[in-house]
């Protein structure tokens, strides 16, 4: 579930006037918020026709495209920041999507529901069921989430690919956490870039 708090957390990492690409932008409300608060200039990427209509109504530029297709129409390093908000877990080609984000943008912001949250662990360990919660509201058979991960998993993923983490925020619902993030956190936000910035 995307809340106002998520928007504010993302906005905190976005310098004024940045050129931003929002992948899986839905109705465009995050971009509209960033336009209003950070004066960004940018586009949403969305593959659902009804969402395209809502983006037009929201007043943001939107490009219909499958973000797993390689985004060939978008030039290398043509954006300051590329955002993937709560969509990572629904990607089939997760690895190439993150690589493409860092191809088209200097920095990436990735947010995802933390599968390591203790309630999820309890549901599997003691209940013996796939977790269902406010943050992961789907049953195993109808979930769009095919690549769920924990905070520890994502950090290992970035380390293996030599992505440099520029920032991390972990929330338990609306409250930011500083201790035991992988156990207590429901939502993780990361800001990353390639280890060697392309010149």
């Amino acid at each position: 579930m995307i809340t106002r708090a998520d928007f504010e957390a993302i906005a905190a990492w976005i310098p004024m006037g940045s050129r931003v690409l929002d992948l899986g932008c839905g109705d465009g409300s995050l971009l509209a918020y960033l336009k209003a608060t950070r004066n960004v200039d940018g586009y949403g990427i969305e593959n659902d026709g009804a969402s395209i209509v809502r983006c037009i109504q929201t007043g943001v530029n939107v490009i219909q495209m499958n973000i797993e297709s390689g985004m060939k129409e978008i030039a290398d390093q043509s954006f300051d920041i590329v955002i993937l908000s709560q969509t990572l877990q629904a990607m089939k080609r997760t690895e190439s999507v993150v690589a493409d984000m860092l191809r088209v943008g200097r920095e990436a912001i990735v947010t995802f529901p933390n599968f390591g949250y203790w309630r999820h662990r309890v549901q599997i360990a003691l209940g013996g069921h796939m977790p269902v919660s406010n943050d992961l509201p789907y049953q195993w058979f109808d979930t769009p989430n095919v690549h769920l991960c924990t905070i520890a998993d994502f950090e290992a993923f970035c380390r293996d690919r030599k992505y440099r983490l520029l920032g991390r925020m972990v929330f338990n619902h609306e409250r930011e956490l500083t201790v035991l993030p992988n156990l207590l956190g429901t939502l993780a936000l990361y800001r990353l870039m390639r280890d060697r910035a392309p010149t």
């Binding site: 586009y43 395209i52 978008i74 030039a75």
Partner: peptide
């Protein structure tokens, strides 16, 4: 997009 125009 290369020209940074407004486009939907």
């Amino acid at each position: 997009l290369d020209d940074k125009k407004d486009v939907t």
